[in-house]
Design a binder for these strands. Structure first.
Lengths: 153, 153
DNA sequence: CAAATAAAGTCTCATAACGCAACCAAATAC
DNA sequence: GTATTTGGTTGCGTTATGAGACTTTATTTG
């Protein structure tokens, strides 16, 4: 009996969670965004078990989120680098950070600032095409014919 | 031996994942954003095992993401409703949706549109205080004194 | 050059989490 | 008054996770 796969749910959120929805993957990705590239550095900074780290890195590579590149002279030193797909998870990581800071207080000794100006970044917000901030209640989930979905969907 | 807790990592992303970082929680929340409120409806729409759903709902209630309210005449019919904290995860859910749509193709038969105009919402982006879109490389992670963090941090 | 250390895994084993199905009790529907 | 719905709980087998020891090349140190 395997873990339930979400492929059949016809939902892109489920599909995303299939790739990065476990406890560790997003932390590995966040760490990669901090600049970490080597196996041991991931291990030391996250305190993750080596076998689990190994499994997560492989899976992220398989899914195209990380790339494993040889950097040793003779091919036994590797680096795990974010791909474009991996870098594009920046929004997700920032969304989680900001949510946690807002609701659990800032447990983080780290700040995220714009490189050129040194200023803190703006809070993320879902926006309409016109640029207005939108909450859950300001949007509608519609099917392919544009019909609103009912509550049990 | 319990699952590794992320509290000691001093990282708000880790802290967020502690609350909603398992396979199911964000799907439950997304479903709640669609309007689902009853135990059976979550069960039917997600296909989650009943004991797991039970555990997830309780944990989300404990963490203040959902609220359990009596709706029956005599108190055995319940609804699980998003709190403000839960609704604020909208950004995270949308970020995951959009990422998955961009990189895995749209596996979803569902669209997210602005309620008033019916138009599709804009792509999420991390922005500077001035409003420019920022990628991972345009930001710096700095410590509390403003010093940039090194790669292994 | 030899020995030591490091990098990147792999293996084993114990425990925790998950998935499935059956069971249960109260409230509602018929 | 019986059947069904709702919101669970219990048992059991399978899978995932965590800790730590072990392995294998490469590089560094003496």
């Amino acid at each position: 009996m395997t873990r339930k796969r979400f492929d059949d749910l016809n939902c892109s959120v489920a599909c995303a969670l299939n790739e990065v929805g476990d406890w560790w993957s997003l932390l590995v990705i966040k760490q990669a965004m901090l600049g970490t590239r080597r196996f041991v550095d991931f291990q030391n900074s996250l305190g993750i078990a080596r076998n689990i780290l190994c499994d997560r890195l492989s899976r992220l590579v398989d899914n195209g989120v990380l790339a494993r590149v040889d950097v040793g002279e003779h091919g036994t030193r590797y680096e795990y680098r974010l791909t474009d797909k991996g870098r594009d998870l920046f929004t997700v990581v920032v969304a989680l950070r900001q949510w946690s800071e807002r609701w659990n207080g800032n447990r983080d000794d780290m700040q995220l600032v714009e490189r050129s100006s040194g200023e803190a970044i703006a809070p993320l917000a879902v926006r309409s095409a016109a640029g207005e901030a939108l909450g859950v209640r300001d949007v509608l989930f519609v099917d392919e014919e544009g019909r609103p979905l009912e509550s049990t969907g």
